[in-house]
Nucleic acid binder design. Structure first.
Length: 583
DNA sequence: ATGCCCTTAC
């Protein structure tokens, strides 16, 4: 039998959880473990680096029961094992708190290794970010990893500004730090700032790694920044980088969300390892381009290739049905999810079904689905049903929906705006006005429409009614020209049904003409003279008038215009749209 | 130490 030192040496080389557990059992049986802190340390350390780090937790209790005192080495390993445990590990959070208290009692919490491990536990499993920050500020020394962990944790919590503060005060920033920050902005939905961050990273000569490029691609996808996304792809090719499943999926997503579904497909087909995320990304990519049946074919291919769809893959497939009006197929999928795969539908799946049914005019069935579903409907569910009411001009049901929706989101404007829209579109202008007064009383604001257009790698942003653009005079002049040409050649009459403002008719024309996508298209027509397609990304869905106008512009000006709205794509060409007027 | 897909509406 080897001595304690031999076991310690053996454990330091052992990475396999089951083998470690066997050694542990032998040490317990021989009574050796009870006498040695070093053996506890070695076991905890080995387990913390294995695939089952949570197996280290009971060892701490064992150590204390044996009357042994933890060393400065015990605590960091144990804390690491806690930080890496599966999220649902019972008692992990309580153990973390106990270990922290113990560290304080023993006067160990300011040791470099201990304090860094504590920061990671606070930022991770305990979710107590500000406590982690306090530790970071009071520790005698802090490593870069702790900064990076806290930055990531703040970013994940949607506190990008706090993450940025830490980033700025870091003594030395590595590619990991930049990556944490870029991805932080992406998670906060601020792709623009993420790209800005990446530009700075390059300016400082830091070599980008896979992870940051995944983040940059996600930022491009979010922002519709095709040219920058293509640049990343070119960079990867130029450096001969292996396209991992992470990079491949990010590329597919970027191309699809930037309107280049064929390029997305090319990358997808070249990927050797396709996991369920990769398949789902491509399925959703086809879906948002209205290519529902191809998306569903892909779903079947995924199944026959042996990749098991998960709950999110079903969301992608149901979404494909919604965008292509494939109601029966959607119902079939929803059933097969339970029957074939035993996946219990979540509220998201009910959301897809309500959307699918409601958008296709089956409002009664959609309402029934909500009444039958086993969970309480959330704002998304009501929003989906409401969108159907708007599409099919059902005032009565809309009023019912709003009552429920407003209880869930009393401070948000979504329900009010939609109801006012439905009233206005049905000619009930007094009711629409009442809603507007109510909104003003409650102090809720409508999210302003915002469109961006990427021209020669620069992203230009337009907000509805915003006349502060430096070239606004040229833009309005251009709009005037567009307006008269489409009136003259195509008989355009502005569709003012959904304009809610209490204003004169000519002013309604102005209000419509200042929708953000119209400003963006006019601007793009001014500064691009070639036949390059115009690519617009909008934060909301396109209104009927803008949809109509864009069709006419594509014909009169002989330009392809690709508009990505909140949820899908519209490719306008020769006077018609790829969505077949269904959105 | 960091990274990929995920339902409504505004």
């Amino acid at each position: 039998m080897a001595g304690a030192a031999g076991y310690v040496e053996l454990l330091s080389r052992c990475g396999e959880a089951r083998a470690i557990s066997r050694i542990q059992a032998a040490l317990v049986t021989s009574g050796r473990l009870r006498r040695s802190v070093e053996l506890h340390d070695a076991l905890i350390r080995a387990l913390s680096r294995s695939a089952r780090p949570h197996l280290a937790h009971p060892l701490y209790a064992h150590l204390l029961r044996a009357g042994l005192l933890p060393t400065p080495h015990t605590l960091p390993s144990l804390l690491k094992s806690i930080a890496l445990s599966p999220a649902a590990t019972p008692g992990a959070a309580a153990l973390a708190v106990a270990v922290h208290a113990h560290a304080v009692k023993l006067g160990l919490e300011r040791f470099l290794l201990v304090s860094n491990a504590l920061i990671r536990v606070h930022a991770g499993i305990l979710g107590r970010l500000d406590d982690g920050l306090l530790l970071l500020r009071t520790a005698s020394a802090v490593d870069a990893a702790s900064f990076n962990t806290l930055i990531t944790a703040y970013a994940r919590a949607g506190r990008a500004a706090d993450a940025r503060k830490l980033f700025d005060e870091m003594p030395a920033r590595s590619a990991v730090s930049w990556s944490a920050m870029v991805n932080g902005y992406v998670q906060a939905g601020d792709g623009r700032e993420a790209l800005e961050m990446f530009a700075q990273m390059q300016a400082e000569g830091v070599c980008p790694d896979d992870t940051v490029l995944v983040g940059v691609l996600a930022a491009c996808a979010q922002h519709g920044a095709l040219e920058q996304g293509k640049w990343v792809h070119g960079y990867l090719k130029a450096h001969g980088t292996r396209i991992t499943v992470f990079l491949g999926t990010a590329l597919v997503d970027m191309y699809a969300k930037c309107g280049e579904v064929q390029l997305a497909m090319d990358v997808f087909e070249a990927m050797k390892d396709k996991n369920v995320l990769a398949w789902t990304t491509m399925i959703k990519g086809l879906a948002i381009h209205g290519r529902g049946s191809e998306a569903l074919t892909l779903f079947s291919q995924m199944e026959s290739s042996g990749v098991r769809p998960d709950d999110i893959a079903f969301i992608g497939a149901l979404c494909a049905c919604t965008h292509a009006g494939l109601v029966d197929k959607g119902r079939e999928l929803f059933d097969s999810m339970v029957r074939k795969y035993g996946i219990k539908p979540k509220i998201e799946h009910y959301g897809c079904m309500v959307d699918l049914l409601a958008r296709n005019g089956l409002l009664g069935e959609a309402k029934e689905m909500i009444q039958k579903m086993p969970m309480k409907p959330d704002a998304l569910i009501w929003g989906a049903l409401m969108a159907g009411c708007r599409f099919h001009k059902n005032v009565e049901l809309a009023e019912y929906v709003v009552k429920h929706w407003i209880l869930l989101e009393p401070d948000k404007s979504g329900a009010y705006v939609l109801l006012a829209n439905i009233y206005a579109a049905s000619g009930r202008h007094n009711s629409a006005r009442e809603i507007r007064h109510l909104m003003r009383e409650k102090g809720v604001d409508k999210t302003p429409g915002c469109s961006t257009v990427e021209i020669r790698g620069i992203i230009h942003q337009f907000i509805v009614g915003d006349l502060s653009h430096p070239r606004i005079k040229d833009i309005l002049t251009k709009w005037h020209e567009i307006d008269s040409r489409i009136r003259l050649q195509e008989g355009y009459i502005p569709d003012k049904k959904e304009v809610l403002l209490d204003i004169e008719e000519e002013e309604k024309d102005d209000a419509l003409s200042r929708h953000s996508e119209k400003l963006a298209i006019a601007f793009a027509l001014i500064i691009t003279s070639d036949n390059m397609p115009i690519r617009i990304v909008k934060n909301l869905r396109v209104c009927h008038d803008c949809h109509h106008v864009t069709k006419l512009i594509s014909k009169v000006y002989g330009r392809e215009i690709i508009v990505r709205d909140r949820t899908r794509f519209h490719l306008f060409k020769d006077g018609s749209c790829s969505c077949k007027d269904y959105w």
